[in-house]
Design a protein around this nucleic acid. Structure first.
Lengths: 253, 253
DNA sequence: GACTATAGCGTACGGCGTACAAAGTTCTAG
DNA sequence: CTAGAACTTTGTACGCCGTACGCTATAGTC
């Protein structure tokens, strides 16, 4: 597990906002923070955060491992910058036609997509969020989706957290499922074929009637890759319905 | 990041269900899987999954590191067993008075509490779930909370995923916030005092009007430890409202 | 008493992040 | 034009990690 926000806040922020002034002496730098971040994101996209090592980044850049530390205080700060960079890919909901509901759905799907493009975002434990331009911008335009509906400020914040949290947790399931095969070298079918017989030996017949019935139905209806996406859309509809109830209450009460 | 379900499924299941037959020869084992799992859970509770190493467990048990591998094929399987064991602490919703709504709320809060007691559960990437008695039991009794309401099997599954997913994602925020101080050696106040001035220098005034207003309101209303819990309860209410809409549809349609 | 299955463990390998100090490079001050 | 300061690059080393391998000691079976 990698942790964000463990470094010196001042140094982190300078990095995130790119406010380091050009030094006036010394040899020309071979690299830039930009190039390091781009390389690191590519590596993490391809192989996950576990496979992202300072040595590996350096190798990719044709440089000694320790050279990276001239540009970035530690791996934690690098990951902060990677994260903020990735958030810059999100498309704000402002131009989405339709009311709050369509805009919130757009926000959720943008987040869902982003986690699939950069699955390593799900491996970061953001104790203290990297306060970069893109994170702050994200918060701002996501809030605009629910502005002017009669919700309190605190409710607006809660609604955004709920919707983005749902996107994150659904994406986690989806991404894990997609990665399981690569990681274990075993397809879902192979895994189940190895698991089911042993499970049958150990399970009392009809000990779990509901679980067997529902589990079978669910896996048959949306077996494989469609399952998590369906769960995401299903949950999103319920959540938006629930938010609609709140908005109606506030409007009529 | 630690991964579950990466080992041989057959061996994993034998471990989870405790069906290894007692060997008939050789020296008396010093340890049991039980003791190893208990020790590992205690260590993980205290210091997180990162600090849980085979060497550390062995030290705690007064044994050489490699001895653990007599009982457990690898760290991945050990974590599978730890996870299933932890799930055994959950209290089923059957005896909760009230209808589906009270029962689902109970399920959500049980999950929320569990993640706080065993924060390391959030660090496990469960690509293939450990099919132990407690995981299977959990699915069964959670489904009972929404049985007989006119929902399809697939909908029942989706509802449970939604509720437990919300508990997990809210707990993740809460746990991260609680751990941030220990991890960084810096309180929230100190962190913000170091962050805010640098941020002010770099931010255009009024560039983010909504974000500033709402962010301030949210952090003042539920500053510190209450924030995540409020977000959890808020989200739970919205989700249950949304599920109510679905149930009403199914009943009337 | 011989055989064998099993438990326990010492050693070693290849990975990680990064502290530290030495060496090389470029600019500035005098 | 030169000396030294500021800066970049890098080699080495430390202490962690999971665990493969093979040896030794032990306990049950024939």
């Amino acid at each position: 597990m990698e942790y964000s926000g463990t470094g010196d806040p001042k140094r982190s922020l300078e990095l995130l906002w790119g406010v380091q002034e050009r030094p006036r002496r010394g040899p020309k730098p071979k690299l830039t923070v930009e190039r390091i971040v781009t390389t690191a994101i590519d590596l993490a996209d391809a192989a996950g955060l576990d496979a992202l090592s300072m040595r590996r980044i350096a190798e990719e850049l044709g440089v000694a491992p320790m050279s990276i530390y001239t540009y970035v205080p530690s791996k934690a700060e690098l990951i902060d910058v990677m994260m903020d960079r990735a958030l810059g890919e999100l498309v704000p909901p402002d131009d989405v036609p339709g009311g709050w509901r369509a805009k919130l759905a757009h926000v959720a799907r943008q987040n869902w997509d982003l986690y699939h493009r950069h699955a390593w975002l799900l491996e970061i434990s953001a104790s203290r969020p990297p306060m970069g331009p893109n994170l702050i911008g994200k918060y701002e335009y996501e809030l605009r989706a629910v502005d002017g509906l009669g919700l309190t400020d605190v409710e607006m914040d809660s609604v955004i957290s709920l919707v983005t949290g749902h996107a994150q947790s659904s994406a986690r399931v989806s991404v894990n499922a997609a990665q399981a095969e690569r990681r274990t070298g075993m397809t879902d079918v192979e895994w189940w074929e190895a698991t089911a017989p042993v499970l049958d030996e150990v399970l009392q017949p009809d000990a779990y009637p509901l679980g067997s019935r529902v589990g079978t139905a669910a896996s048959q209806a949306y077996g494989g890759a469609i399952g998590p996406e369906h769960a995401f859309e299903f949950g999103l509809e319920r959540i938006l319905d629930g938010i609609a109830v709140l908005i109606t209450e506030r409007a009529s009460g």
